[in-house]
Amino acid sequence: MQLTKNISQISIIKSLLAIILGSIALTISAKIKIPFYPVPMTMQTFVVLFLGISLGYKIGLASIGLYLFEGIIGLPVFSNSPEKGVGLIYFTGPTMGYLIGFLSAGFLASKINNKDSFLLVLGKLIIATSTIYLFGLLWLGMLIGWDKPIFELGAKPFLLAEVFKIVLLALITKQIVKIRNFII
């Protein structure tokens, strides 16, 4: 009985540590800008997908949720904060849809498994990433108006970087899933 309780406590501590580390990884990925064409690239979407694949949907979504909560309460965790604001005001700005899309992308990425072929992994990652842009463009359109070139403003400049990140992640996904299955 005591052994079961200790194992349960260790499991909870392990999960909390993974959630916190996932949130930290997302924050770091938001702050580092990599020179890329046509706009600088962050690795946020890569880390969102990575968290879903490596931690599964419960812990992965909790990590993403903690990151969003930290930003909403005013911690400067988002890509352009504190330069362009913090807290709820920043969160409800032009990037809110993309940030909310992180949750759907992390969830969908968690559905990748060891039996998936490279092409299936690639397809699942494309769909997961597409949800980020779907939510992002919907929010952006509501915020600035549908008469503006929403796709050209909110997606097109980032697509080349997304292709790079998706292919990179697809190449290492089998190893990530093996490690996840070994640890969990």
Rank of each mutant, 00 (worst) to 15 (best):
T45K: 06
L171I: 05
A105M: 05
I20T: 07
Y57F: 13
P157H: 02
Y57C: 04
T92I: 14
S63P: 14
N113H: 04
I34C: 04
I176Y: 11
S11G: 01
V39F: 15
P157T: 02
K124C: 04
I64C: 05
I13Y: 06
L49W: 00
N80L: 10
K174G: 05
I127V: 13
K174Y: 04
P94T: 13
P157I: 14
T4H: 13
S81R: 06
P149D: 12
A128H: 00
G145M: 01
G145C: 04
W139I: 03
Y57W: 15
S79I: 09
A62F: 05
L88T: 02
K115S: 14
R180C: 03
P35S: 02
K148H: 07
I64L: 03
K31M: 08
G106I: 08
A18M: 15
W139H: 10
F46W: 05
M41W: 07
I12A: 09
S8T: 10
Y90K: 04
E162S: 04
L49F: 01
G106L: 06
P94N: 14
T45S: 12
L137V: 02
Q2P: 00
E83Q: 14
F164D: 14
V121I: 14
P157S: 03
Q175L: 08
V47N: 01
V177H: 03
I20S: 06
L169Y: 00
Y98N: 14
K14M: 15
F91L: 02
P157A: 02
A30I: 15
G106M: 11
L171W: 01
V48Y: 11
G60W: 15
T45Q: 07
L140Y: 15
V47Q: 11
K33P: 09
M142W: 05
L138H: 07
L3K: 06
F118C: 00
R180K: 15
I126V: 13
I166M: 11
A30Q: 11
K178M: 10
P94H: 11
W139P: 08
E83H: 04
N80E: 01
A161M: 05
S15M: 11
V47A: 12
T27W: 14
F135S: 12
F46L: 04
K31F: 14
K111M: 12
P40C: 00
I176D: 09
E162A: 07
I13P: 00
I150L: 03
Q44S: 11
S8G: 09
I144H: 13
S81D: 07
